[in-house]
Amino acid sequence: MAEALSFSLVAGEASGDLLAGLLLGGMRDKWPDMRSAGIGGPRMAAQGFEPWWPYEKLAVRGYVEVLRHYREIVGIRHQLRERLLANPPSAFIGVDAPDFNLDLERDLKAQGIPAIHFVCPSIWAWRADRVEKIRQSVDHVLCIFPFETDLLAQHGIDATYVGHPLAKNIPDVPDRAAARTALGLPQDATVVALLPGSRSSEIEYLAHRFLQAAQRMAKQQPGLYFVLPAMPALRARIEAIAKDVGEVPNLLVLNGQSHAALAACDVTLIASGTATLEAALFKRPMVIAYNMNWLSWQIMRRKKLQPWVGLPNILCQDFVVPELLQDAATPDALAHEVLQWLANPAAAAAVQQRFATLHDTLRRDTPALAAHAIEKVLAR
């Protein structure tokens, strides 16, 4: 009997854990006896994945912030590389987290271990010079946006468009009433979802601003309800920040449940990142915000290739939703932009239609397509 396939995966944050969990589901359908281990979180573990380290160890964003954790992160990568070289898996799959995964993939590929990267690094948005590193590091890229495969092919990189897995898992018309019932929210309330991010650095830079914006919104439009999904590991810090900011009327801090919050809300104030695409798939008007260490911002803005940073705007090639970045992300400005959506139902309906079209473009049987692509890599 043939030995069961084994895969090593690395996801570096909550969104990667979600994507990898869906990917592992498709892989398990194809290879029921497979084994998987590496760096990940609870959604991967639910698919039988063995986490050697939790993804939180890698969940750092920004150049200065990474430097503070550099030694630990590099140590983890060295230990993982040595472990995989000593006991090679059938293939390695890096799930996003390119700063961590590409170097590891390059070393594993050089030793004959197939290296696959799930989620094409955003070379179309910033750091275009990274394309050569991708070519050297991976055997195949699983792309979640349709234009990426042609871009990679121009540089001799094999790739497959597999769609965005969340597009298949999020319904065309989310059940707002059921979400509100599940969260204990009044059905007739106006609800604002506050999503300041899933990394500790994002919480430090954004949670104060988001909660202060909520205070201003509540003052200008009494009766609003606010839901704030918190990663369990960060909930205590968020609650401490909320206490420091002062009372926010009708604020509900949740344990995770970001999808329930997006389904329940009328509009969301949200940190730039993968969650903005999730909000678009939930057809929710949004205000995208970001703030980070000043030096990290100066470095990052110089590498930006497009006028947008939010995924919904990049994919629509238009400022369909506002982006308030760095110094522009003041509590007053954030509150004003969120209230503009509530005051203009026609604009909200128009952006929801744009997001419905985007949803259709991204919907594919991602787990099955990805597993099939992985199978072709293994057959080489």
Rank of each mutant, 00 (worst) to 15 (best):
V95L: 08
V95F: 07
D96Q: 02
A97H: 04
P98R: 02
P98N: 02
E105F: 00
E105G: 06
R106H: 11
L108E: 00
K109I: 10
G112L: 00
P114Y: 00
I116M: 09
I116N: 03
H117R: 02
H117I: 01
H117E: 01
F118H: 08
F118P: 04
A125T: 10
W126Y: 08
A128W: 08
A128C: 12
D129I: 15
R130Y: 10
V131N: 00
E132A: 15
K133V: 13
I134W: 03
I134G: 02
Q136V: 10
S137I: 10
S137R: 07
D139N: 10
H140Q: 11
H140D: 09
V141C: 09
L142Q: 02
L142A: 11
C143Y: 06
C143G: 05
I144Y: 04
F147L: 07
T149P: 03
L152G: 01
L152C: 09
A153C: 13
A153H: 14
A153Y: 15
G156C: 15
D158V: 11
D158A: 15
D158W: 08
D158E: 15
Y161R: 02
Y161M: 07
V162P: 02
L166M: 14
L166E: 01
K168A: 13
N169H: 14
N169Q: 14
I170N: 00
I170W: 07
I170T: 02
I170Y: 07
V173E: 12
P174T: 05
P174I: 09
R176A: 05
A177Q: 14
A182M: 02
A182K: 11
G184F: 05
G184N: 08
P186G: 05
D188R: 10
D188N: 09
A189C: 09
T190K: 12
V191C: 02
